[in-house]
Amino acid sequence: MPTPAAPSTSTSSSSPRAAAHKVPRSKPPPALHLVAGGLGGMAGAVVTAPFDVVKTRLQSDLFARVAESHSRTGIRALLWNFVDTGKILRDVYKYEGASALLKGLGPTLAGAVPARSINFFVYGNGKAMFADTFNHGKENTAVHLAAAATAGVATAAATNPIWVVKTDMQLRQQERDAAKSSTPTPRRPPPPPAPKPHQQVFSHSFRSLSSPPSAMQGPPPRPTSYSTAVQIMRTQGVRGFYRGLSASLLGVTEGTIQWSLYEQFKRMVRADNGGGGGGEGGGGDASWRVSAAAGGAKLVATVITYPHEVVRTRLRQPIPPGGAARYTSLVQSFRLVVREEGWRALYGGMSAHLMRVIPNAAAMFTVYEFLLSVADTSQAARIDGENEVVVRE
């Protein structure tokens, strides 16, 4: 005689009904990508601000003209860049003060926060849109590439004026020092000796990495973001704020490579972590793995596409008063740098850049994924509570 299966029948009959009424889990709200990306960009910019100052100066031809006398070849030249970075950090701190290591941080934050917000917003929502439209809702490498390229173009076009102001601020003091040292002084009788001031103010002219900096009679004026923007508008017009945009658009390839590699590395992290997780980032236990994935993706993308960074900095250099810009277009800048300084100049400042962007990317993506994970966990808890109510009913 068959055994009654009433309990199992009751369970099986209630499960489909409950499953049919369960509240489905939805994707993160679009605004979450905006907020998480902005907070991540802020964290990364503050942590790595000193390296950004050094990178900008090393990319400038003001340092390149000086460094010709210290030229090295082969792998030794690349490794020596890390020594140069340390020396410049030391000299900037010693002769210009600790605040000089944060020079341009205001425009950097003003650029990094909206730039990362726009980039993460467009990418996070763009990959969902491309997947739903062209690949039946499934993500793949082509979807990641399309979303990353779209995000890069939108970010470059929206934030280029901010980066022009930041670069101008970081290089204007070096332009002033170079002009001062090159201006001939008329012969005059030597003045009577003046009493030695209590403290002498110096400014690093980068005449060499080991020689002492030139003395100045007083503290140099400190340009602000507002005064720099006004100066650019008066002398160059609106077009002046879009110097280097062509190189920024070329740099979209870096972001595209970075996002694609990051998605691949993140997938490997999830597989290595047993697929565990919560949220986009694979849970809090794998935060260091997310950081490693972000840093590794940024390292590969930067090494491949770095020359555009140098050309972009040259295009954004301050134009001397009454003079003409030496770098006028993307192709002309590439040719001029290679002809006058050699192909190695296209990698000037890469050591400082790597020391900045790798921890920057690690911090930024960790904060971004953490916030997505927190939002996803909160949403999952809310939906599970609603589903439990449905099952009981």
Rank of each mutant, 00 (worst) to 15 (best):
residue 7 P to E: 09
residue 14 S to A: 10
residue 22 K to M: 13
residue 23 V to A: 07
residue 30 P to Q: 11
residue 34 L to H: 08
residue 39 L to N: 00
residue 42 M to A: 09
residue 45 A to Q: 10
residue 54 V to I: 09
residue 55 K to F: 11
residue 57 R to Q: 09
residue 61 D to I: 10
residue 65 R to P: 06
residue 68 E to D: 08
residue 75 I to Q: 11
residue 85 T to M: 05
residue 86 G to Q: 12
residue 88 I to G: 04
residue 91 D to S: 15
residue 95 Y to S: 03
residue 106 G to I: 06
residue 117 S to R: 01
residue 131 A to N: 02
residue 133 T to H: 10
residue 134 F to E: 01
residue 150 T to L: 06
residue 159 T to F: 01
residue 162 I to F: 08
residue 164 V to H: 06
residue 182 S to W: 05
residue 184 P to F: 03
residue 185 T to I: 12
residue 192 P to Q: 06
residue 221 P to K: 14
residue 223 P to W: 04
residue 225 S to E: 07
residue 225 S to H: 08
residue 228 T to M: 08
residue 240 G to P: 02
residue 248 S to I: 00
residue 257 I to S: 01
residue 268 M to A: 13
residue 270 R to A: 14
residue 276 G to P: 04
residue 280 E to T: 07
residue 295 G to L: 03
residue 301 A to G: 03
residue 304 I to H: 00
residue 308 H to D: 11
residue 318 P to H: 03
residue 327 Y to K: 00
residue 330 L to I: 07
residue 334 F to A: 03
residue 336 L to P: 03
residue 339 R to E: 08
residue 344 R to H: 15
residue 349 G to D: 05
residue 351 S to F: 06
residue 362 A to W: 14
residue 368 Y to D: 11
residue 379 Q to N: 10
residue 381 A to H: 14
residue 390 V to R: 12
